[in-house]
């Protein structure tokens, strides 16, 4: 474990993230221009979708059925475990619990990308269809948590608006859309653009993106004083529990060590892009500071620095 942790800690991805956090803590005026940040995010998601689609075209559909079903089941469980812990252990109210559970039922695309890159770096690249699994994990996760909240709070009239928000969010459109484009692209035509989407440019962009993610996460650290110790413990414990659950699911689904690591990291992650607007619209009385601080200031840094190597360890124990 120590050696794997060291590999991760000394990777430019992790170090750039830490630099971003430090830049924020010393109140540096540095931050990536908003449009550059958004553009890099779009590039990374679309590149992963494209590569996933190209790989999927090489695989047979039969291979993906079992992992898809298991991931869908995992997606249904995660919001329920989160909600139960928040309500029972944390004693939080219905709206706040459901709001945070929606974040932990969803997936952080950046954690996913970092885990994909880590698995590739360990010479155990994940299966090509992983972006499909992300979509399957994320969608039921948000929907279930919001439904719990809406039911307990006496019904919401905005189901259509929220589902539109979730399904047309940039993560799903770029990943799933990219997969479709990659899947049907002629191999010779893909080969012409592949150097832009695969390889050095992709990895370099990821480092730059993580630098800004550090700034974004660092901005949230101040809110920790306000949100309290339970949320810190929750953000870490939930990541480890969901990571273990995801690793077990990956092993049962027959994924390799890389794929299992990535599924575990996805399962351990919490959204801060797709979930917040959906939660804000459905559960307006849930405090967004709680959910955003937990997912951005605690779970995300934990996963990037310690979590991904830990899930790799889980995966190498569980996968035969």
């Amino acid at each position: 474990m120590g050696a794997i942790l060291e590999v991760n800690l000394l990777s430019p991805i992790t170090l750039a993230f830490v630099l971003g956090v430090i830049a924020r803590l010393v109140r540096s005026e540095f931050s990536l221009p908003r449009d550059v940040y958004a553009g890099l995010g779009i590039y990374l998601l679309f590149a992963l979708g494209l590569k996933g689609g190209v790989e999927l075209a090489k695989a047979s559909w039969g291979v993906i059925v079992l992992p898809a079903v298991i991931t869908l089941a995992l997606g249904c469980i995660r919001p329920l475990t989160s909600y139960a812990v928040l309500r029972r252990v944390g004693g939080l109210g219905v709206s706040d619990s459901a709001g945070i559970a929606a974040h932990y039922g969803s997936v952080s695309a950046v954690t996913f990308i970092a885990a994909m890159s880590f698995a590739a770096g360990m010479d155990t690249p994940a299966e090509g269809y992983m972006p499909t699994l992300l979509a399957l994990l994320e969608t039921p996760g948000i929907a279930i948590a919001l439904t719990i909240g809406a039911l307990k709070m006496g019904g919401s009239r905005n189901t259509r608006e929220v589902m539109h928000e979730v399904l047309t969010g940039r993560t799903l459109v770029l990943l799933v859309g990219g997969m479709a484009v990659g899947y049907v692209s002629a191999p010779e035509a893909w080969a012409q653009v592949a150097p832009f989407y695969d390889g050095a440019i992709f990895k370099g962009a990821l480092v730059l993106f993580l630098l800004e993610m550090g700034v974004v996460a660092g901005e949230r650290l101040n809110d920790l004083r306000q949100t309290g110790a339970f949320l810190v413990a929750f953000g870490i414990a939930m990541a480890v529990i969901h990571g273990l659950l995801g690793a077990a699911a990956g092993a049962v689904a027959g994924l390799g060590v890389g794929g299992t690591t990535v599924l575990a990291a996805m399962s351990a992650s919490a959204s801060y892009i797709a979930a917040p607007p959906a939660v804000r619209l459905t559960l307006p009385d849930a405090n967004p500071t709680l959910s955003l601080t937990a997912s951005l200031a605690i779970t995300f840094p934990f996963n990037i620095i310690v979590g991904i190597p830990l899930y790799y360890q889980f995966a190498s124990w569980l996968v035969r």
């Binding site: 908003r34 974004v216 949230r220 801060y272 892009i273 917040p276 607007p277 804000r280 500071t289």
Partner: peptide, 8 residues
């Protein structure tokens, strides 16, 4: 002081 969405 509520900041919401992907860009605080």
């Amino acid at each position: 002081g509520i900041r919401t969405g992907d860009v605080p």
